[in-house]
Design a protein around this nucleic acid. Sequence first.
DNA 1: CAGAATAATTGCAACGTTGCAATACAAATT
DNA 2: AATTTGTATTGCAACGTTGCAATTATTCTG
Lengths: 341, 341
Amino acid sequence: MRDAKKTEKKPKGRATLRTIAELTGLSLSTVSLSLRGGASLKEETRRKVAEAARAVGYVPDRAGVRLRTGKTNVIALVLDGAPDSIDFAQNMIQGVGHAIRGTRYHLTVTPEFERTASVESIRYILDNRTADGVIITHTAPRDPRVQLMMDADFPFVCHGRTEFFTPHAYHDFHSEAFARLAVERLLSKGRHDLLLTIGDDSTTNYHNIVTTFKGEVARAGISGTVMDTSVARGRSSELRKFGIDLATAPQRPDGIICDSETRAIALISGLYEGGLRIGRELDLISKQTTDILPTVFPDVDSIEEDVYFAGKELTRLLLRRIEGEAPETLQTLGEPIPHWH
Amino acid sequence: MRDAKKTEKKPKGRATLRTIAELTGLSLSTVSLSLRGGASLKEETRRKVAEAARAVGYVPDRAGVRLRTGKTNVIALVLDGAPDSIDFAQNMIQGVGHAIRGTRYHLTVTPEFERTASVESIRYILDNRTADGVIITHTAPRDPRVQLMMDADFPFVCHGRTEFFTPHAYHDFHSEAFARLAVERLLSKGRHDLLLTIGDDSTTNYHNIVTTFKGEVARAGISGTVMDTSVARGRSSELRKFGIDLATAPQRPDGIICDSETRAIALISGLYEGGLRIGRELDLISKQTTDILPTVFPDVDSIEEDVYFAGKELTRLLLRRIEGEAPETLQTLGEPIPHWH
DNA sequence: CAGAATAATTGCAACGTTGCAATACAAATT
DNA sequence: AATTTGTATTGCAACGTTGCAATTATTCTG
């Protein structure tokens, strides 16, 4: 009876370190150590443990590890409430998912409900140590969320840059290259009265695009206007209306740059409705994240931002940041991919 | 010295039950009990504990609770690899997020990489008890994932129905109502040669729509064809091409029903390119999940599926299922919302 | 072959929580 | 004052893991 109890304990249930310990006759500590590659162990011991672990399909219990070490093996993605890229969430998540494949990391998603991301979600994650690292998107120049995480010395990575002096990890779309490409393309088509429609003036991206746009336009000696963000930010029906009006206006730009696919769709359908044709009266270039735009309007040039890649890259950077790598070495840009028709 | 150590222990760090215990002079057990509303406690004690907890901002440690009770306070959303609704993930996640607001639940997202969801993700969640409940989408008639979770008696809810005899929780779009509405609408416009384009024939939804479509068409005594799924499933450029061909074909349907926004967009732009105009030569009705379609093609009738609502509802059902409520009481349908122009 | 040096393994405590059995307390009954 | 009855509170063990100090096994040295 005593023997039976000693040799075979609980046949049912999940395999734990204890299961392996009993199986191999080693102690809990040894098994634990061995599984994490303890260099001081005998070769044979490590083999035995590894074998037993495989045999019973051992996977470390997340709660146990987390309680003991504080490591959550979770990365948190804070998702903006009103993204302006189509299928942004889907692609971003696919990217992250791909990058954590085969690791012990899980992905938790914290959706933001307000239009502009508040600091609450971040504070919650920090206070409750609910993740090992955070990915935020739509970063603002002096983003308070970034400030908070830097102060707490908490691993994070931004989809977007900031103005802070202290370096932090980021992967950002190369907005400057985007703006430059777009202006150049329109110039090459002989356009010289450009309009930039851009919606969210809170992000660093906005500033990068606007600044580059103005610079390029000035350099080329042509006219360039930045559209009132309040119109661009509005519902798509408004923007469509704006397109119709623009089509019938006495004088109008002959080249339009659009920073968002959804906005481009609304605007262009308005222009068409108003009787204009892209490629004839004017040219238009838009950022795209899916192939909807070129499907509907094959005459439109577009420049792709690969959100899926961004998700992968952000995660790659974050994991290295969690490992302790210095932030200044974890900064990359995503090149815009032109799709000239 | 001994006193100092006893009265004030660790000024820094997170507040735990011990913090409150020391603060109130009560024991760990009492504090724990009290916080969970122990009925046997003195009124004054509960007040004191509650006060102290609030004062130090106590939040139960997830790892501790999870280790002890097995409760993860996590719900897992398994996201399909190739959704055919625009911004499906975004809206679904917003819905779930809304529904778990104010609860202790977190949301983890497991992206699926293959086109058809495999059983792997589910098995992983089950084996590792990595969530208290699961939401799956795009359910198939005899979905093996559902089978697996039913066998394991694990709480889950489907976005979609199945053919299984054993009842399970679901919230599904009312595809039958959708198909009926669409056929009726086209009939009312005098159309009598209908085409149904539908992409993913693996889902229960597909069968529901096709069956209802055929039934309604037969009842009305008109012609109705279901398009080869392989074309509908293809890249949007193919579908666009199909639209162009259709526009110039000697004979073609005068009414089209489309089960997906993306597909509708590709098809319609092909039709337009081919010279057809919706509302003149033919009418088209599509399912929509965003307002992109009516923005681009105001002449198209659409029927909305509210994915955000679905997310909320699925979560509501799942939480009740986790509480132990019977599956048969947790089955709801989402009504289609017509947008006749 | 004793003793030192090294290699390999282990026991213990702790992370924060909860359920249960056990105890302490207060009031009521002998 | 001793016993009974509740009522209110508490100690203990356990969930699975890991880091450290301590122990045991092995090899080396003189």
